[in-house]
């Protein structure tokens, strides 16, 4: 195999799939926890939740958090060390983002070179990184509201940290849904994330 052809190195593919698994476990157990005391006037259907009961869901949530956090730190660390962040995500500008979005709507957005992220991709992936960070921080504020006063106040207090956690989850799920649609439209990207080329 020609190493030069590898677009996604092994560490990136591994951290991507571990993150995907951790997020699925966090979100599904989180829905079960939400159901115990809904913030809004709806519940998540039991069939798509994880844990069976509140205690079980909490066990899953507080197991998967380690996976999410450790894997996330490895991902961020390796991106910085290998300077991949700079290569993949810079430059990003509102103007080129709009132009790419227009191309996408017209169905003209090029996917010939998958080693290069287009502007909406850069934005979406950066958003996912920031959003998961916010989920971890708001989650910590809920879990340790007495021990982490600064984080609690940044989130606007305990009750408001729950809303931040919920909104960050909802937007993550929405962006991931779009991500999955995009992968379905350009299936080569799925192969790329499995084989690396």
């Amino acid at each position: 195999m020609n190493r030069a052809q590898i677009i996604h190195p092994l560490w990136l593919r591994l951290t991507h799939w571990i993150n995907a698994l951790a997020v699925v476990m966090m979100v599904m157990s989180g829905w079960k926890i939400y159901n115990a005391s809904p913030i809004f006037h709806f519940n998540f259907p039991e069939e798509i939740t994880l844990g069976g009961w509140l205690g079980g869901a909490l066990l899953w949530h507080f197991f998967a958090m380690w996976l999410l956090m450790a894997n996330g730190l490895i991902y961020l660390g390796l991106n910085l060390v290998t300077k991949r962040f700079k290569r993949k995500f810079v430059p990003i500008s509102p103007r080129s983002l709009l132009l790419d979005l227009l191309d996408a709507i017209k169905g003209k957005l090029a996917h010939a070179d998958l080693s290069h992220y287009n502007q909406p991709q850069k934005l979406a992936y950066l958003f996912i990184i920031i959003d998961i960070t916010l989920l971890v921080l708001s989650g910590l504020a809920i879990w340790k509201s007495v021990q982490l006063p600064l984080l609690r106040e940044l989130m606007g207090g305990y009750d408001s940290a729950r809303i931040v956690h919920f909104v960050a989850m909802s937007t993550l799920v929405a962006v991931v849904a779009v991500h999955l649609v995009m992968v379905a439209l350009v299936p080569r990207t799925l192969l790329l994330m499995i084989r690396g080329r």
């Binding site: 699925v24 476990m25 599904m28 079960k32 039991e46 069939e47 798509i48 939740t49 994880l50 844990g51 069976g52 009961w53 205690g55 079980g56 066990l59």
Partner: peptide, 15 residues
């Protein structure tokens, strides 16, 4: 009791 409460894999077992 813990088992009776059914710490099921829930949706994950389907996946």
């Amino acid at each position: 009791l813990f088992l009776q409460r059914g710490l099921s894999l829930g949706g994950l077992s389907l996946l």
